[in-house]
Design a protein around this nucleic acid. Structure first.
Lengths: 334, 334
DNA sequence: TTGTAAGCGTTATCAA
DNA sequence: TTGATAACGCTTACAA
């Protein structure tokens, strides 16, 4: 009970393997009747083409590698969906890897991925080890960094400034009259998008002549709701005068909001709360949480289209596709 | 500037390609000095092995395909993490596909996946088209269904009965004195885990001689928080006597809880709420939501280990690994 | 411990 | 429109 090969189909149809190969890829250079006959035989025999062999022969893997910090984050999940939506119909499959926010794991995955000869590599911005960066630079394929506009891009970028967006939201809090603003962030966040957001908070506070030192970072990325709750308690113990909280992400903000409620602090009357990312929870909570809206699905689609363009055009020039990241003011920052 | 091949490394080290191949796979049958020399050359030349060629030659793809309904669901994301954690160190890479809860998309993906000659196929339980089922049955590789114990398993299973778990939680609501229990579920859910949960609700209600007909299903899977809110309003309009809500998932339950608050209904005093899945939100909300706890990470790890076993043992027998799914009672069902 | 030779199943290329 | 032939870069199997 051996596996059916192309040559078996060819024999059954009384043609050569090459003709079968052509029939299977709407190549044009084949007569309609021959194709019909071949497709029928393919069906009869239950032939499944071997892309391992096909990729090897054509030297095209049909893979696009994607590295994300976590799948357990609606942002990256949506971005991956957007990518799949654009790339699958073009015959490309995603090779998805999950770094767990670890630069070492990212390096390992990049190496694993490159062995599969992907046609492009998409990496979510985060710190890279020197070796990882070198691997990316010398990969010889299009590399797209997403979800941030890095200072020193490797090649192409589809992203925005997390720092600037975070600064804008902080500025909004300041404009609406808050002065004693605290920040809930992540520790060990060097090189991450979270670190950029923290810088943005500091930028805005300094610019306004306010003290940016009220910061807590209780956990490594990604900080969760419960840690947000804990962070809020810590903040109110250390800085009881706090009248607003800027958070690295919506789950943290929701945690803070929830703890405010548990402690009897009114939001936004006593304390304003703002998050980042427009997670579902920020829309559904009471009150809804002010946040930075980023269209994660769109990042995936745009990146997918960029990859298709880069693969067909062989452009040398680096592309930067800016993505909108706009503050959306909701009741929590009243 | 051509890509370095194994033969190039071999020449640089003054050995044959085969020796390089051995050096790269801790094969044992090679002298330590030779290996050291070769690894040094590999490093110098920046050689990246071509697994496309390697897989083709050895007829082992090194892939394990995984189909999940959605990445944007912490359950499947964690399961994928668990799989990656176990399979990567064994030299296997995940080929992840996202069906969007669509049987047609699943069929398409299964076909795409099989062309890559994965060594095993892991599919989250959901309805399959006849063709998809046939492809799975005839794939010739281990197939593991996860996240449910199907009536007619294809081969192996790592899962639990969503129906039974849902019935248990409903029974808890009944035991604690609720009588007019409504259900928030999903429409177009035939063959999904959500449908099993709905059946479980009905089972428990009937068993207790209660009316199971209070059901709303406003959206296709996966239902979200906002739809949970809307569903609760619908329920209270239709059946004002409702004193408990059983939900297909925690996000829906949180939506219901939130809408109760917005409408001034006390939880659990006026209405009890229960969910499914132990999502973060069910622990962090006020009050915390009673839910069915399922260890998604563990499902991934167990499945990973099962796959490794199946690949080494070549067992013919079907394996069923039961996974715990226990109700955890929290304040929301007080 | 190392090397040699023969594929692995497809597609590119050129010829018919 | 179709076919023959030669890769593609590595690993298996066997030999030295």
């Amino acid at each position: 009970m051996k596996r059916i090969k192309m040559i078996d189909v060819a024999r059954a149809a009384g043609v050569s393997a090459m003709t079968v190969s052509r029939a299977l890829k709407r190549d044009g250079r084949i007569s309609p009747e021959t194709r019909r006959l071949i497709l029928q035989k393919v069906d009869e025999l239950g032939y499944v083409p071997d892309r391992l062999a096909g990729s090897f022969s054509s030297q095209k893997s049909g893979f696009v590698s994607v590295l994300v910090p976590s799948l357990n984050n609606p942002h990256f999940a949506e971005t991956a969906s957007g990518l799949q939506e654009i790339l699958n119909p073009a015959g490309l499959q995603l090779l998805l890897g999950y770094t767990g926010y670890s630069a070492a794991q990212a390096e390992y995955l990049i190496e694993m991925m490159l062995e599969r000869r992907p046609e492009a590599l998409i990496v979510t911005y985060d710190s890279h080890t020197p070796k990882a960066r070198k691997l990316l630079e010398q990969s010889g394929i299009p590399v797209v960094e997403i979800w941030e506009m890095p200072q020193h891009p490797i090649q192409h970028v589809v992203g925005f400034s997390n720092r600037k967006a975070s600064a804008e939201m902080t500025a909004h809090l300041i404009t609406s009259g808050r002065r004693n603003i605290a920040y809930i962030g992540e520790c060990d966040d060097s090189g991450t998008r979270g670190a950029e957001r923290r810088k943005g908070f500091r930028d805005a506070m300094r610019r306004a002549g306010l003290d940016p030192s009220r910061q807590v970072a209780l956990a490594a990325p990604p900080i969760n709701m419960m840690q947000g709750r804990e962070a809020l308690r810590t903040i109110l113990e250390r800085w009881p005068e706090t009248d607003a909280i800027m958070c690295v992400s919506d789950p943290a903000a929701f945690g803070a909001l929830t703890e405010c409620r548990a402690l009897g602090r009114r939001v936004p009357e006593d304390i304003a709360v703002a998050g980042f990312g427009d997670f579902e929870i920020s829309r559904c909570s009471i009150p809804p949480i002010s946040t930075i809206v980023v269209d994660a699905l769109d990042i995936g689609r745009q990146t997918g289209q960029l990859v298709l363009r880069l693969l067909s055009e062989k452009t040398e020039q680096s592309v930067y596709l800016p993505i909108a990241a706009r503050p959306e003011i909701r009741q929590s920052s009243g």
